[in-house]
Structure formats: structure tokens, C-alpha cells
Amino acid sequence: MADGARKRRTVLGGLLAGAVLATGLGACAVNGGPFRESYCWGAWQEDSGPSFLGDEALGESGSRRRESSQSPAPSAGRPGATCTVGVTSTGMGRPTTYDAKVVVDYGPLPEAVEERRAWLAANLHGSKSPLPDGLDGVVSVSGAFLVLPKACDVKGRPSVVTLSSVRADGTPGKWTAGTRIGTYEHVTRMLLDVANTGMGSAGCAPERPLRTASPHVVVAHEDDLRDLPFCRIPGVGFGSEGSWIGVYSQQWIGAVTPRLQSCSVMWKIPGARDESTAQYVMAGSPRTAALFEGLPEGIPEGLTHVTCQGRRTVFYGHAQGSLVPGKAAVERSFTNFVRSVGNRIGCGNGVRA
């Protein structure tokens, strides 16, 4: 009897140990390790692919990744949320400092006109490429945004998820926009992971999670302005670029597709604080066009739309800064952009229908 009991205990103990071992191996196989950190409401995990979430971002001894701030996850009653993940470094008696940060913002677009224009200038920049597979948004190695489905709108305004990044510039408390998060594919994956997580929490997720399978098309360029019209479109510009002696200038020519065309321009006097900027966008998909809803319309306002081939297409142009010339030159430049792009996409010369 005693021997039989001992045998049963031995067999039972072996089965339990095997079950625990199998469970542990399964966790390692699925997660790559049982103790990986997760960030931003569980949307991201360390060592899950993107370089910012892997060892590549921890370039020096004493560096570590940490979630520096996180609001509650989005919900139907509280649709706005934010999360920040930073890489810190310590050592040699120095206090902990942040070297780089990735910031997630989830929620409706800004309602105020100037805040909306600032958001468009930063996020719909000509240096970013369209997301593939019909998703509404753009991506670069340092940031991205996605327009969420209409079910996630808040009081008629589209909700968006933005990823932005900053890096320390050597001055305490000072940050420079744009640190490398990863490849286009990695940044897109991080964007969609946090978007799917946020929509699930807010109760507006589609039946299937958002995913991409197609490759990205990288189309952004950076050019000196002195010998080129804005956006490489004849007649778009202010007519004074050739006289910009001593003026530093750049432009980024982004997407040129039926769904999206964008370019961004910057010029300044070296050493001066003020930057002058211009931005031109054609948005031919409904969700991207919705980003401009609520802004004042008309050629003088730099916003107009046409309905062609059954879809609403928006044209947008905005210029600001001390080096921007008079109103007539700005309106002429925008009109030429509308006519040229309208003809390219089969919408005539941009006259509203």
C-alpha cells in the first residue's frame, strides 16, 4: 500500500512538473521570454520587432526603456488618451535623463483653426509616405498618423492616432523633433497595434483588426528651392524664390497619387529664429478629406473642394512666416496648385461642381 501510494505521488509529481515546464516553454515560444515589458495599454512589447522596442535603441551601458507617462486607455466617454515611452540613460553619478521619446496621441482632431493647421503642418508633411493597402494616413521612420474609421468620430470630428518622436539636443529640457523609431514597416506596425488597442478600448473597433500586407512606397524628396517651383508644379510658388540670396530653403515632395498629393516648403535667413513655411495638399479619399472639415473654405482661405467621379476631393494650401509675400501671390500660387492637380486626377481645373 505504501509503495503504491509513493508510486502514485511520483507519477503525479512528474505530470505536474511536466505541465509547468510545458507551460513555461509555451510562454517563451509565444512571447520570446516570460518577463517582457509592455507599453501603451499593452499594445507594444519589448523585443517585438521595431528597433525602438529592441536592444538597438539601448545603445549605451546604463540605458533602459521605460514608460514615462500613460493616461487611462481610451473609452467611449473619454476618447482622448496619450502615452509616452522613453529611452533613458544613467551612469557616472549622473541623474537619469531621457535621450529619446516616442509619443502616442489618440483622439479627435483639434477643433480650433490654428491648432488644426499646426497639426496638419506637422503630421501631413511632405516628408512622409502614404500608408499602404488603402489605409488613411502617412508614415516615416520617425512618426506616423492614421485616420480612424468613422465609428470613432467625436462630435463630427475624425479621431486619429499619431506617433511622434523627439530626441534630446544636449540642452537640459530641450528637444528636437524626429528620432528614428524604426523602418517604415516597423513604425506602421507600432501605429496599427496601438490603434487597434485604442479602438478596442473605446468600443469603435472594426470587425477585423487593421493590418497591412503591401510594401511601402517611399516617395519623399528634399530639394533646394532656388531653381524649382513649389511641389515641382509650374506656377506654384511666389515668384520671388530666385532672389532669395542668402536664404536657406528646402522642400519635401511627398505623395503624388490619386488619393493624396503633398509637399512642404521651408525657408529662412540663416541665424534667424523665424521660419517661413508653406504646405500644399490634395486629399482624394473620404477619411483624409475629413481632416479639413470645419476649416474656413475659399481660395483666400487656402481650402476648396470639388466633387468628381463621385468623390469629394479637397485642395489645401497654407503659408505663414515673415518671408511670405503679399496675399495676391499666395492666392495665385494656391490657384495654380488646384488647377494643375485637379487636371492630373481628372477633376478639371478645380472649379467646384
Score class of each variant (00 low, 15 high):
Gln251Thr: 09
Trp175Lys: 01
Trp41Ser: 06
His305Tyr: 13
Gln251Phe: 01
Ser264Asn: 02
Arg6His: 11
Ala329Cys: 12
Gly321Phe: 04
Gly294Thr: 12
Asp105Ser: 15
Asn196Cys: 06
Phe334Leu: 10
Gly59Pro: 08
Ser285Cys: 06
Val166Cys: 08
Leu25Pro: 09
Val219Ser: 13
Lys150Met: 10
Leu21Ser: 14
Leu260Ser: 04
Ser75Met: 05
Arg232Cys: 06
Phe52Trp: 04
Gln45Ile: 09
Arg287Thr: 06
Pro108Leu: 04
Pro72Gly: 10
Val113Arg: 13
Gly310Lys: 03
Gly239Ile: 06
Lys155Trp: 07
Lys128Ile: 06
Val141Trp: 04
Ala205Ile: 02
Phe35Ile: 12
Asp153Lys: 10
Pro95Gly: 02
Asn343Glu: 14
Arg78His: 07
Ala168Lys: 06
Thr171Asn: 11
Pro95Ile: 03
Thr304Ser: 01
Thr288Gly: 07
Ser48Gln: 00
Gly310Arg: 02
Leu58Ser: 07
Glu60Trp: 12
Leu191Ser: 00
Pro95His: 04
Asp55Asn: 10
Val85Tyr: 01
Gly107Cys: 02
Pro296Tyr: 05
Glu185Gly: 13
Ala177Pro: 09
Gln250Ala: 12
Gly254Ser: 04
Gly59Cys: 02
Pro229Lys: 04
Gly91Ser: 11
Ala151Glu: 11
Leu291Ala: 05
Gln251Val: 05
Gln279Ile: 06
His186Gly: 15
Gln309His: 14
Met282Gly: 00
Tyr39Asp: 12
Pro79Cys: 03
Cys204Asn: 07
Tyr98Gly: 01
Val138Tyr: 03
Met199Ser: 03
Pro149Thr: 07
Glu241Met: 06
Ala112Val: 10
Ala121Phe: 14
Thr162Ile: 06
Gly242Ser: 15
Gly346Pro: 08
Tyr248Ile: 05
Leu124Gly: 02
Ser63Ile: 05
Ser276Lys: 08
Val217Pro: 04
His221Gly: 15
Ala118Thr: 08
Ala122Phe: 05
Met1Arg: 14
Ser159Tyr: 00
Glu301Ala: 12
Ala81Trp: 01
His216Cys: 08
Ala43Glu: 03
Ser165Leu: 04
Met92Lys: 14
Leu135Asn: 09
Thr88Leu: 14
Ala5Tyr: 12
Arg94Ser: 15
Gly246Phe: 04
Thr257Glu: 09
Asp3Trp: 08
Gly239Met: 04
Arg6Val: 13
Arg94Ala: 12
Asn343Ile: 07
Val187Cys: 02
Trp119Gly: 08
Asp133Ser: 08
Cys347Glu: 09
Leu191Pro: 00
Gly18Leu: 15
Ala151Arg: 03
Ala121Val: 09
Glu60Val: 15
Cys347Lys: 08
Thr176Trp: 10
Tyr316Arg: 02
Val306Ala: 02
Pro215Tyr: 07
Phe230Met: 13
Thr179Trp: 02
Gly42Ile: 07
Thr197Met: 09
